[in-house]
């Protein structure tokens, strides 16, 4: 008993037959083989599976694939545009915002949503925005700096243009 869904992921259209109980996180990883979206828990607590669904950060383990029918999805694999890294990707490398890299895709996706809403977030605002995502390696300090770094890049670009 499967259902047909149509989704656009990182700009590419996909039509898939999925079981109704398939989680979106498993759909992305197992069906589309976009393994940058990670699964770290079974209670929607860790945020490693965060993606953008129609422009908003969501934990892809909280949705069924069938609920994403018709949606536009961006995953970590879709963040770099035309060979150029996203400012957040630059920020994370520059400020050592990652160690093992497992939580990183989720962190970047959440941070991108934050910067969309708030171009110059304070440290407190950043820490609050990351509240749904666990990192066990960094102690978060360099993640905060990475996001500030990215905000600076984005804001400078806007001033120039």
């Amino acid at each position: 008993m499967s259902t047909t869904i149509h989704v656009t992921v990182n700009g590419k259209q996909h039509t898939s037959e999925v079981e109704p109980r398939l989680l979106l996180s498993h759909y992305l990883r197992d069906v589309l083989r976009l393994t940058g979206t990670h699964i770290g828990c079974d209670t929607s607590s860790c945020g490693a599976c965060t993606i953008h669904l129609d422009g908003k950060a969501v934990k892809s383990c909280t949705l069924l694939a069938v609920q994403a029918d018709g949606a536009h999805i961006t995953t970590i694999e879709g963040m770099a545009q035309g060979g150029a890294l996203h400012p957040l990707q630059v920020g994370f490398q520059e400020e050592h915002g990652l160690q093992c890299g497992f939580c990183t895709p989720g962190m970047i996706m959440v941070a991108a949503d934050l910067l969309d809403r708030n171009a110059q977030p304070s440290e407190t605002e950043i820490r609050e925005a990351l509240e749904g995502n666990f990192c066990r390696c960094t102690g978060y300090q360099n993640i905060v700096k990475s996001i500030q770094h990215a905000a600076d890049i984005i804001n400078k670009k806007e001033v120039v243009s």
Partner: peptide, 21 residues
């Protein structure tokens, strides 16, 4: 020195055990 391993992790190209099929 900035980490050379970061490139694969920030672009979702890390390969963890569960990623292998």
């Amino acid at each position: 020195v900035k980490r050379v391993e970061d490139k694969r992790f920030i672009t979702g190209q890390g390969q963890y055990t569960d990623d292998i099929v």
